[in-house]
């Protein structure tokens, strides 16, 4: 194992896709997974030992958001200040809305942290189909390390120094995607209205990102707007599936089942609403998504509310 080898943590679709993408480069790639992998990932070495994974200085973390803190704490025992940790986890944790990089800052000695985001999908990444991704870090060194590891003629990497902005953007896109699924499934939402809703939603999310202390432009870029546009075409994105199910009258529990994967945004929307309220941000779209989730209004009422903005 060379010090420049890349370690990927998380054996779900995202983790596997990142490992596949990294294995196309010159560095040795390791994958740590708790799951029993059905088949070998070509070019990727498997380990179940965090200490072994920690021999890699660049670590890409793709675990479910609800496990981020416990994984970080455990991993932290094996890391020091020379490691670079970059995560691809969508979500903001707790009532204080901690970003995943904040969690890693609290639970590990690692300071050089970064995040991945943008419209790229796990299957595109795994298959090596052309796509685009954003990497954000306050450290240029982190961005360079990720570009060296993942950039290829099939994966375009955009970089940003606004780490917080990208993490917030990714989380908010998750929430807004529910609204997209909902609107798409409603017969009374025309394409023109859908476009108007999305534009307003982007504006609203950018204002929330600013209130969170990040740069609003980050939301207008690939990690926000770009990611949200992908939701329009991605009919199987769990958030979109969930929104669609709710639009057709399904109860939240049934909609959750239809989405199959865990939808972080369900728990996140009320916390975002509380945050926006505390910061006096106007939020009609997020209010509507809140109403979609808690079933407090009839779908037709929500559509009218969305229409009024």
């Amino acid at each position: 194992m060379t010090p420049t080898s890349i370690g990927v943590l998380g054996g779900g679709p995202w983790g596997l896709a990142l490992a596949r993408a990294a294995s196309r480069g010159p560095s040795v790639t390791w994958l740590h997974s708790r799951r029993q992998q059905d088949a070998d990932v070509p070019g990727v070495r498997l380990t179940r030992d965090l200490a072994e994974l920690a021999n890699c200085r660049l670590l890409l973390v793709a675990v479910p958001s609800n496990l981020a803190r416990s994984v970080a704490r455990e991993l932290g025992d094996h890391l020091d200040g020379s490691h670079i940790v970059v995560h691809g986890i969508r979500g903001l944790s707790g009532p204080e809305l901690s970003t995943v990089s904040q969690i890693f800052r609290e639970e590990t000695p690692v300071r050089r942290l970064g995040a991945l985001g943008g419209p790229v999908q796990a299957d595109e990444l795994a298959a090596g189909r052309p796509s685009a991704m954003v990497v954000a870090s306050e450290f240029a060194e982190v961005i360079a390390a990720v570009c060296d590891a993942l950039q290829s003629d099939r994966l375009q990497l955009e970089s940003s120094r606004d780490l917080r902005g990208l993490e917030w953007a990714s989380a908010l896109v998750g929430c807004l995607s529910i609204g997209i699924g909902f609107a798409q499934a409603r017969g009374d939402v025309s394409p023109g209205l859908l476009a108007a809703l999305i534009s307003r939603a982007v504006d609203e999310a950018a204002t929330i990102v600013t209130a969170a202390g990040a740069d609003e432009n980050t939301f207008y870029g690939l990690g926000g707007y770009g990611d949200l546009l992908a939701s329009m075409a991605l009919t199987d994105r769990p958030e979109v599936v969930l929104g669609r199910a709710l639009a057709t009258g399904a109860k939240l529990e049934d909609a959750r089942k239809q989405a199959r994967l865990r939808v972080e945004a369900i728990d996140l929307v009320p916390r975002i609403l509380a945050f926006a309220k505390a910061h006096e941000v106007r939020r009609p779209i997020f209010d509507a998504i809140g109403a979609i989730l808690d079933g407090s209004s009839e779908p037709s009422v929500i559509v009218r509310a969305l229409f009024r903005g």
Binding site: P3, L58, G76, D77, G81, S82, R105, E106, E107, E141
Partner: peptide, 28 residues
């Protein structure tokens, strides 16, 4: 040096690059 959880951390690790060498990096 101590991390946020109070673990002892090798101070020099913060100035080591990906290759593990001590480096001067103005941006970092």
């Amino acid at each position: 040096s101590l991390d946020a959880r109070g673990r002892t951390v090798e101070t020099s690790s913060f100035v080591r690059n990906v290759a593990g060498e001590v480096s001067v990096d103005a941006d970092r």
